[in-house]
Design a binder for these strands. Structure first.
Length: 271
DNA sequence: AGAGGTACCTGGCAGC
DNA sequence: TGCTGCCAGGTACCTC
């Protein structure tokens, strides 16, 4: 579910309810996520005040007291604000009760998400320190990406999905960006010239920017912090459209597995 | 160092 | 209808 636009949509949705709020209680119903929720996190957070709500890649970072909460939504996680108490479902693993009376609820059927705690600067945490640049920052440029790709044989689609190269580009947006840039997803990343990297970087930035503006992509059940779905799925040009007409040339869109992930592209437009 | 595969977990769906 | 197998938005970690 959540790629960068969905995480950013979530961040924007929950931020106004969290900043400056006192944490009354952390309720953990299921500790076993991607990694176990640390024992004693309840005590650490109790009576602390939430500062900033930031995002790094697909990680949400809540500064709380002397440390930071690192939250990842995994494949199926979502966070939403509840205005009143409501009976938790089987996948509602965590509630954060706030002084305002609102609560932040974490739901994650597949439990690939994470709730971790660090007292060090978040940039030094093992999960965050090797991350590549933010795709919407100036650090993510065509020159940078081209340099990273020199000599590499990895398919460009897998290449731009590597978090050490650039963060936040998941399967959906990798497919969409490559379609916009007219680049074949299986092409070796080292065999793409600087000019085409300009097109690709522009495509990645525009796809992500547009998706954020539309509240992300809801394929099954993604909802933002207020429980509303995203609308970018209406703008998807190739993802999930195998066999349908290419929006540019009407040729059928092909579906193919590249690096164990389903990939969609137009064999006529993309080279 | 880079590339490829595996693992974590549940729900939904196609096919029989 | 009910069972089985496969697939899914992520990514750390293992081996070659």
């Amino acid at each position: 579910m959540p790629e960068l636009p969905e995480v950013e949509t979530t961040r924007r949705g929950i931020e106004p309810y969290l900043v400056g709020q006192r944490i009354e209680q952390l309720v953990v119903r299921q500790r076993r996520l991607r990694w176990p929720i640390p024992r004693g996190l309840e005590q650490k957070l109790s009576a602390q005040t939430i500062g900033q709500v930031q995002r790094r890649g697909k990680y949400l970072l809540l500064s709380v007291g002397k440390g930071s909460l690192i939250i990842h939504l995994g494949m199926s996680g979502s966070l939403r604000i509840l205005r009143q108490e409501s009976a938790p479902g089987p996948h509602d693993h965590v509630d954060l009760l706030l002084g305002s009376g609102y609560r932040l609820r974490f739901t994650d059927p597949r439990r690939f998400g994470a709730w971790l705690w660090t007292t060090r600067p978040t940039g030094q945490h093992a999960l965050l320190k090797a991350l590549g640049p933010e795709p919407l920052s100036d650090d993510f440029s065509a020159g940078y990406l081209h340099q990273c790709a020199i000599g590499r044989k990895l398919a460009v689609k897998n290449f731009i999905m590597q978090s050490g190269i650039v963060v936040g580009v998941g399967n959906i947006y990798a497919n969409e960006a490559l379609f916009r840039a007219a680049i074949h997803p299986a092409r070796a990343s080292g065999r793409i010239g600087p000019q085409r990297y300009i097109t690709l970087v522009t495509a990645i930035k525009s796809v992500l920017t547009e998706a954020i503006a539309q509240g992300g992509t809801t394929l099954r059940d993604f909802v933002d912090g207020e429980g509303k779905p995203g609308y970018f799925q209406q703008s998807l040009q190739v993802y999930g459209r195998g066999g349908a007409a290419c929006p540019r040339c009407t040729n059928p869109i092909r579906e193919q597995r590249i690096g164990q992930r389903s990939s969609f592209y137009c064999p006529r437009c993309q080279h």
